[in-house]
Simulated scan of single mutants.
Amino acid sequence: MKAFAFIKLLAILSIIMLLGCSVPESSPASRVKLSESGVYAADISRDGTKAIISEVNGAIRVWDLNNDVPLYLWQHQGDERNLVDNVRFSPDDAFAITSDSEAFALWSLENGEPLGFWRIDESSIQDIALSNSASSVLIARSNGQVMYFEPQTQRRLEFLGHGEDKVNSVDLSANGKYALTGGNDYKAYLWSTETGQVIHVFQHPQRVTRVKLDQQARYAFTADGQNDAQIWDVQTGKAVSQLKFIERQIIFTSAEFSDDGKYLLTGSPSKRLMLWDVESGESVQQWRVKPSDGPAPQSAVVYAVGFDHGSTEETKRFASSISSAGNFAKWDISSQDVRGHK
Rank of each mutant, 00 (worst) to 15 (best):
M1T: 11
K2C: 13
F6Y: 13
S14G: 13
S14A: 15
I16C: 15
L19R: 09
G20H: 07
S22A: 09
S22I: 11
P24Y: 04
A29P: 01
R31Q: 10
L34K: 04
S37D: 03
S37M: 00
G38Y: 10
A41Q: 09
R46G: 15
I52A: 07
I53S: 05
S54L: 05
S54I: 03
V56E: 10
V56A: 13
G58W: 02
W63K: 01
N67D: 04
D68E: 12
L71S: 06
Y72M: 12
L73Q: 08
W74F: 05
Q75R: 03
Q75A: 04
Q77F: 09
Q77M: 14
G78V: 04
D79F: 03
R81K: 08
V84P: 00
D85N: 13
F95V: 01
S99N: 04
D100N: 12
E102L: 02
A103T: 05
F104W: 15
F104G: 00
L106G: 06
L109I: 01
G112Q: 00
G112C: 00
R119M: 02
I120W: 05
E122C: 03
E122A: 12
S124E: 13
Q126M: 12
A129H: 08
A129K: 04
S131N: 07
S135T: 08
V137F: 03
R141F: 10
N143Y: 12
Y148G: 03
Q152L: 11
Q154R: 07
Q154V: 07
R155V: 08
E158M: 08
F159R: 06
G163V: 05
V167L: 06
L172P: 12
G176C: 02
K177G: 07
L180E: 10
G183P: 14
W191I: 06
T195V: 04
T195A: 03
H200Q: 09
V201M: 13
F202P: 14
H204L: 01
Q206D: 15
R207E: 15
R207Y: 14
T209G: 15
R210D: 14
L213S: 01
Q215F: 11
Q215A: 07
R218Y: 01
A220F: 12
F221Y: 08
T222K: 13
D224R: 05
N227E: 07
D228Q: 08
D228M: 08
Q230M: 13
G237A: 05
A239R: 15
Q242F: 01
Q242E: 09
F245V: 07
E247N: 08
F252Y: 15
S258E: 02
D260T: 01
G261P: 00
K262Q: 02
Y263Q: 13
L265Y: 02
T266D: 06
G267F: 04
P269H: 10
K271H: 05
L273K: 13
L273F: 02
M274I: 14
M274N: 07
W276L: 11
V278M: 04
S280A: 03
S280L: 03
S280W: 01
G281H: 00
E282D: 15
R288H: 00
S292F: 13
S292Y: 14
G294Q: 06
P295F: 11
P297K: 02
Q298W: 02
S299F: 12
Y303E: 14
A304L: 02
G306I: 06
G306N: 10
G310H: 00
E313K: 07
E314A: 13
T315D: 13
T315S: 11
S324A: 09
N327Y: 06
N327G: 02
N327R: 05
A329E: 06
S334C: 04
R339T: 12
H341K: 12
K342L: 12
